[in-house]
Simulated scan of single mutants.
Amino acid sequence: MLIAKDVSKKYKNNAGNFNISLTVKSNEVYGIMGSNGAGKSTFIRQVLGFIKPDSGKITIDGMDSFTNTKEIMLFSGYIPGEIALYDALTGIQYLKIIAKLKGNIDWNYIDKLLSFFELDAKKRIIKMFSGMKQKCSYA
């Protein structure tokens, strides 16, 4: 499902990530751990095609993560630790906007996610704790 081979991204002062190789098969779950500045977020951004590796290659389901980002984002996603949403909206208003932008959204599935995450989406986003904002962005 995911193959990273000798992936590197170098920033100033020897920061970034270097020579990462990893294979994740379908139905496997991996976590990425490391100290601040270890390159975790950089690697995730490379995997999702947000930034291009300086060297190496990443494929997801046989597709190049950088050149096929649009296709890959149809079945994957990323929620950062720090998330910024439209504070003036309620969770439901936000979800309806996102659903309209994405198109072809099964609202019954959204209702199931709201129930599963125990999210009160009638609340204004500004009143939500950060974990609730993350749940709202996932739904």
Rank of each mutant, 00 (worst) to 15 (best):
K52N: 04
G37D: 13
A38N: 07
A38P: 07
E28N: 15
L22P: 02
N36S: 14
N27R: 14
L22G: 02
G37Y: 11
F43W: 06
Q46E: 14
V24L: 06
I32V: 15
K40W: 06
G39H: 09
Q46H: 01
F50D: 06
N27Q: 14
V29Q: 03
K40M: 08
G49E: 04
I32G: 12
V29A: 09
M33D: 01
S21R: 13
G34V: 05
A38S: 14
N36R: 09
L48D: 01
S26V: 08
R45N: 11
N27K: 15
K52Q: 09
M33L: 15
N36C: 10
G31N: 09
A38M: 08
I51R: 01
S26W: 03
I44L: 12
M33W: 07
N27C: 10
M33S: 15
N27A: 13
I44A: 07
I32L: 15
G37V: 13
V24E: 00
Y30G: 09
Q46R: 02
G39Q: 04
K52V: 04
K52W: 02
N36E: 11
S26M: 07
K40Y: 07
N27W: 13
L22R: 04
K40I: 05
T23N: 11
I32H: 06
G49K: 01
V24G: 03
T42S: 15
K52D: 01
G49Y: 03
T23K: 13
I44E: 00
M33H: 04
K40C: 05
S21N: 12
I32S: 06
V47S: 04
F43I: 01
G31L: 11
F50W: 05
T23I: 11
F43C: 10
F50T: 05
S26I: 08
E28I: 15
S41N: 06
S21E: 09
T23E: 11
M33V: 15
R45Y: 00
N27M: 13
S35V: 10
F43G: 02
S35F: 11
T42C: 06
K40G: 06
N36T: 10
I51Q: 01
K25L: 11
I51C: 05
N36L: 07
T23G: 02
I44G: 02
K52F: 01
G34Y: 05
S35D: 11
A38R: 10
P53Y: 03
T23M: 08
K25V: 07
K25H: 12
F43D: 01
F50M: 13
M33T: 15
G37A: 12
V47N: 04
A38V: 07
L22W: 05
L22D: 04
V24H: 03
S21P: 13
V47C: 06
G31R: 10
G31Q: 09
S35E: 13
F50I: 15
S41H: 04
G49W: 01
M33I: 15
I51G: 00
Y30P: 08
S41G: 13
G39F: 06
N36I: 12
G34S: 05
A38I: 08
R45V: 00
A38F: 10
Q46P: 02
I32K: 09
G34C: 05
N27S: 14
T42W: 08
K25I: 04
I44R: 01
Y30H: 15
S35W: 08
G49T: 03
T23C: 04
T42H: 10
V24T: 03
R45L: 01
K25P: 02
